[in-house]
Amino acid sequence: MAKILTEKLNLWYGDFHALKDVNANFEPNRITAIIGPSGCGKSTMLRVFNRMNDLIENVKTDGKVLVDGINILDLDADLVKLRKEVGMVFQRPNPFPLSIYENIVFGERVHSENIKKDRLDEIVEMSLKSVLLWDELKDRLKEPALRLSLEQKQRLCIARLIAVKSDVLLMDEPCSTLDPQATAKIEELMRELKNNYTIIIVTHNMQQAARVSDDTGFMLLGELVEFGRTQDIFTAPRDKRTEDYITGRYG
């Protein structure tokens, strides 16, 4: 069954039609890449899945987005639950100006006021282990997170999601501020994580999409032009526009 399913998803920013009849199916335990030129609506679509577009005024959405079979566009959708389940990794690593430890337990502390310290310690260890940072950082947990390297910060941001028990990770160009070596490490982490998570990554780096994803969607001017197995998209695209884009004729 699909983890996230969109049916006739449309979105307008004021008069601007940013997403047009998008039908897509994101399967669990796979990495799906969304590619396309700047302004094609790929980040917008990502931000529908955890309703972050709600923060912008004048946005209108219609159609259906089912996460585990529940339509999250419903007015009475439980946003707190949704956003815990569907976590987001942003383009710029953005830890809070707190310690490494406090960054990871931030969500948990706010959600359950009188949680035990032992429990928090467990969460920190588990989350840092999942992002392969535990050995590096276990003796530095009280240090400010802003002192970490960019790559470590981005891992920490992923750990922060794991701590609130997300099971979908939305990644909005998570490597665009990183150097190639750090990028390779984050990609390796993504492959590791996909055993337990559903990962959707927006990227305008086609090599990255080809390297890391199982499925790929190509978007252009708000339309999802083609969606399928990554291998098929990159070797035998059915749509002329997809072919033009991946062969670098524009973008």
């Binding site: 955890n50 972050m52 923060l55 946003l79 707190v80 639950k81 949704l82 956003r83 815990k84 976590g87 987001m88 942003f90 953005n94 809070f96 931030f106 969500g107 706010v110 959600h111 941001c157 922060r160 999601l161 609130v164």
Partner: peptide, 8 residues
């Protein structure tokens, strides 16, 4: 944004 995206 991050805080809201964590369900806070």
């Amino acid at each position: 944004e991050v805080s809201l995206s964590l369900g806070v």
